[in-house]
Amino acid sequence: MASRVILLSGLVALIVNAALALDNNPILDFCVADTKNTVLVNGYVCKDPKTVQAEDFYASGFHIPTNTSNQLGFNALPATAAQIPGLNTFGISAARIDYAPGGIIPPHSHPRATEILIVLEGSQLEVGFVTSNPENRHITKVIGKGDVFVFPVGLIHYQRNNGSQPASGIVAFSSQNPGVHTVANVVFGSNPEIATDILAKAFQVDNNVINQIKSHF
């Protein structure tokens, strides 16, 4: 009898913990972000519902290619709660991505969101992510127009256009504010910087190598 009580208690604890791990459901029809409010909360403060307009739920321009004339050869047009205030509290966002031939989105992660990519144009888009320690498995595939690929939340991932023509896609995130950590910028361009000797030991290289890399960030 005692063992059954212990087992039942364990199951109840698991169910409660699973429930607490989920995002809370909205308790309002919407909570349109008041982006001018200076109160700090986990998200944005809600506008007065009486002042909400259709424009709060709207953005345009996703059909227009973005300018990829930059060092990395890619650009993004985001649609998060910062651009569409009506997304606040809903846990979703999106972006249009454009890639020049040879353009890359360098290794990065989204700390708060899983990402799903739908390719609109292009036939040689290399995508990949790396699983966490200790396996560090590199999972990669070349995809094209009409294909879909998922990048799990928090994992380092990248994209590269191996084709001779521009490519584009739409990405969606399971967060209104997915955040982004670009590996090179975070490691070599932090402010204040991470000590050179720490990075040299971590990457098993000479201090001069680290300083040379830092100079680019």
Rank of each mutant, 00 (worst) to 15 (best):
A59I: 13
I139G: 05
L77S: 06
I92H: 02
T140Q: 01
G43K: 11
R137I: 10
P78A: 04
P106R: 06
H108M: 00
I143R: 00
D147F: 02
P85N: 12
D48C: 08
I97E: 06
L120M: 13
R137C: 00
P65W: 07
T66L: 04
I84S: 04
G122K: 09
D56H: 13
G43T: 14
D98R: 08
H108E: 00
Q124T: 07
E55M: 10
Q53T: 15
L125R: 07
E115P: 09
I118M: 13
S93K: 02
K145R: 00
D98I: 01
G146M: 07
F74D: 01
L77A: 11
Q124P: 03
P107N: 00
E115M: 08
E135S: 15
P85D: 10
I64P: 06
V142A: 03
Q83K: 13
H63P: 02
H110I: 09
F129C: 10
D147N: 13
I104R: 00
Q124W: 01
P111S: 12
E135I: 15
G128F: 05
S60R: 08
I97P: 01
N136Y: 15
K50C: 03
P78V: 01
V130F: 06
H138W: 01
Q53A: 14
F90M: 13
I139N: 04
R96Y: 09
N70T: 03
F62D: 05
F62M: 10
S60M: 06
I139Y: 01
L117F: 15
Q53R: 15
G144M: 01
G102N: 01
Y44D: 09
S123K: 14
P78Y: 08
G146N: 07
Q53I: 11
V142C: 08
G103V: 00
N75F: 11
F57N: 11
T51E: 14
A94C: 08
V119I: 15
A95P: 05
V127R: 01
P134F: 12
